[in-house]
Design a protein around this nucleic acid. Structure first.
Lengths: 191, 191, 191, 191
DNA sequence: AATGAATGAGCCTTCATTCAT
DNA sequence: AATGAATGAAGGCTCATTCAT
C-alpha cells in the first residue's frame, strides 16, 4: 500500500504547481498554455480547473508556498534592532531563502511586465518594500539607499544574470552574497 | 499647406515604432496586440504589415534605432586602454545612452522571458558581453567580476527598480551612476 | 428518447468529415474555410480544433477512412499471380471501391495542385504506384504501360469528366469500366 | 538602341503572364499570390494592376494567348468530313498544340476545382465540347463515346500523370498519342 | 508605366474557460 | 477526482484590390 497510485492521490495539485513553475520560468507565463501543462501531466485541461480556479491561481498557489520562508524572515527581521549585524544576517538568510525558490524568482525577474498586472505583483512588491525597509535607512543619502536596493536586486538577478560567467554555481552564489553584503555594509557605514 | 496631414506621410513607420515601444514597455510584448497598436494610430492592422514583416520585426526596428549609440560606445571602448579611467568613462557614457533609450531598456528588463526567445535576445546579449568585456577583468576574483556585471545591471534596472523611492529622477540617476562607478572602481582596485 | 440530440453526441467528428468532404470537393480545399464548415454544422470553429489538429488533418482523416478498401485491394492484388484475369479483377474491384469514395476522388482529381503539397499527396501517389505496379508490366512497350495508367486514370476521372455526357450514371460507370478493362487487356496481350 | 531597356518596354505584360503561368502551374492558382508574382518580376503589386484588371484577368490573358492554335484546329475540324482520317488528324494536331501549351494544360488539369469557378472554366469546357463533337459520334455506343473522351483526356493528362514513368519525354508523347489515336480508331470502327 | 501606402475581409489557429457527466 | 465536448474572444498574418501621385 501507499504505492505510486496511492501516492499520486492528492498529489495532483502539487504536481500541477511543479510543472507549471517549470514551464512558466522556462518560457514565460503568457507563452505557457494550460494545454501544455495538462499534457505534461497527462491529464486534461479540465482537471486543472478542478484544482485551481484560474491560470493566475496556479501562480498564486506557487507563490504562497515558496514565499513562506521569506515571510518568516521578514517577521524576524522586523523585531531585531537596526544594527549592521542584523542587516547582514537578513541578507545572508535572504540569499538562502532565494536559492530554495530559485525558479520562482527567476520567473519573477524575467516576467515583470506580466507579473505587474497580476495579483502576485502586489504581493511581491509588498515583500520587497518590507525587506528593504529593514535593510535601508530612510534618511541615508540616496546613493546608500540605492546600494541597499541594488543588494537585494543583485541577489535576485544573481544566478541568471551571471549565466554567461563560467564558474561553479556555488562559488557564484558566494560571490554574489559577498557583493551584496558589501553593498549593505558600505551603505550602513555611510558614503 | 504641408499641414499635419502631409507631415504624416512617410512618418507612419516611425509612428508605429513609437506607439509600439510605448505599449510594449507598458504592458509587455505578448499582451500588446497589433490590433491595439493599429487602433492607436488609427490605421488598420494590415497597414502595420506594409511597414514591417512581422510583429517581431517592429521590435527589431526599434532596437536597431535606439541601440546605435551603444554600438558606438562599444566601438570606442574597445580601442581604449584597459585603465580605470576608461572603465569609469564607459559606465558614465553608458548611463547617458541608456537614459535616451529608457523605455526600451525597461522593456528588455521586464520582458526577459519573452526577449530571450526573440532575435533581439541574442543581439542584446552580445552587446552586454562586449560591454562587460571592456569593464571586467577575466582573471579578477569572481566577486569583482560580479561587481562589474552588477554595475551594468544596476544601470539598467536603476530607474524602474527604484520607482518606489521617492526622489527627484535626476538625483536618482546620479545616485545610480555613483554606485555603478563605485562598483567598477572597487573591482578594478581589487577586493 | 435517444433522440437526435443524443445521437449527435460523439458524432461530431464524423459529421465534420462529411461536411468537409462535401465542401472540399465542391469548392476546392483552399476555397473552403473552416468558418464555412463550422457554420454548416452549427458549431464554432474552435470545436473543429477539438476534433482535428489542423485543417489538413481533417482531410487526412477523410482519406484514411475512405481509402481502407483500396489498401485491402492492393494487399490482395499483390499476392495474386500476374495474370490477365488478376489484372481485370483488380480493375473491376477498383472501380467499385472508387464509386464508394466518389467525392473524395473527385476532390483528389480536381485539386491536384493543392493535394501535391499536402501529406495526402504522397499517400495517394504511393497507392497509385502500387496499383499500377500490379497492372502494368515494367518491360512492356511504353504504349502498353501508358494504356494501363490511362485505365486507372479513366476510372478516376470517369464520372466527372463525363458529366456533360447525358446518360444513366450506372450505364456510364459500366462503360468506363469496359474501356478500362479493354485497355488493360490490350496492354496485356501486347500492342 | 533597342537595348534591354527598350526591349523591356511593352514587354512587362508578357513577362507577367509568363511568370504567372509558371507559378500558377507549379503551386496552384490560389496558392500563388500577386505579391509573389510581383516580387519575381521585381515590380510592385500595383504594377500588375496597371496591366491587368484582376488576378483572374491575368489567367484569361494567358489562356487567350495559348489557346489560339486550338481554336484554329476546331475551326478546321468543323469543316472536314466526319471520317476516321479527320478524327485521327485532329487528335494528332491537338497533341501538337498541347505540347506548346504544356504548362497551361497542366495547370487546367491540376486546378479544376478552381478553374471551374473562374470564367476560363466555361471557355475551356466549350472548347472541349467542340473538340469532342468532332471526334465523337453522338449515336455511337456509350463505351465508344467514353473512348473518345478518354482519348482527349489522356492527351491532357499524359505528361503529368506519367511523371513517374521513367522514359524519354518525346517517346512518352508518342506513346500517349498512339494510345489516343487507337482509342479514337476503335471508337470509330465500333465496339 | 509604375509606385507607395493603405484597406477590408478573411484565414488558420490558440487560448482560458465552462459545464454536464 | 477528472473527462469530453464545446465556446467566445482574440491573435498574427496574408490577400486582392484601390488610388493619389
Amino acid at each position: 500500500m501507499d504505492g505510486s497510485r496511492h501516492r499520486r492521490r492528492g498529489d495532483t495539485r502539487q504536481r500541477i504547481q511543479d510543472v507549471a513553475l517549470e514551464l512558466f520560468s522556462d518560457q514565460g507565463y503568457e507563452k505557457t498554455s494550460l494545454r501544455e501543462i495538462a499534457e505534461r501531466l497527462d491529464v486534461t485541461k479540465a482537471a486543472l480547473y478542478y484544482h485551481f480556479k484560474t491560470k493566475e491561481d496556479i501562480l498564486i498557489g506557487i507563490f504562497g508556498d515558496l514565499t513562506r520562508p521569506i515571510d518568516e524572515l521578514i517577521a524576524w527581521g522586523r523585531e531585531q534592532p537596526h544594527t549592521l549585524a542584523t542587516k547582514q544576517e537578513v541578507v545572508r538568510r535572504y540569499s538562502e531563502a532565494l536559492s530554495d525558490a530559485g525558479p520562482l524568482f527567476r520567473f519573477m525577474q524575467e516576467n515583470q511586465a506580466t507579473v505587474r498586472e497580476l495579483r502576485i505583483g502586489e504581493m511581491f512588491k509588498d515583500r520587497m518594500l518590507e525587506l528593504s525597509a529593514i535593510i535601508r535607512d530612510v534618511d541615508a543619502p540616496l546613493a546608500d539607499q540605492v546600494r541597499c536596493i541594488t543588494a537585494l536586486f543583485t541577489l535576485h538577478a544573481g544566478m541568471f544574470a551571471l549565466r554567461e560567467l563560467k564558474a561553479d554555481p556555488e562559488d557564484k552564489r558566494k560571490a554574489v552574497l559577498e557583493v551584496a553584503i558589501d553593498l549593505v555594509t558600505q551603505a550602513h557605514n555611510g558614503a
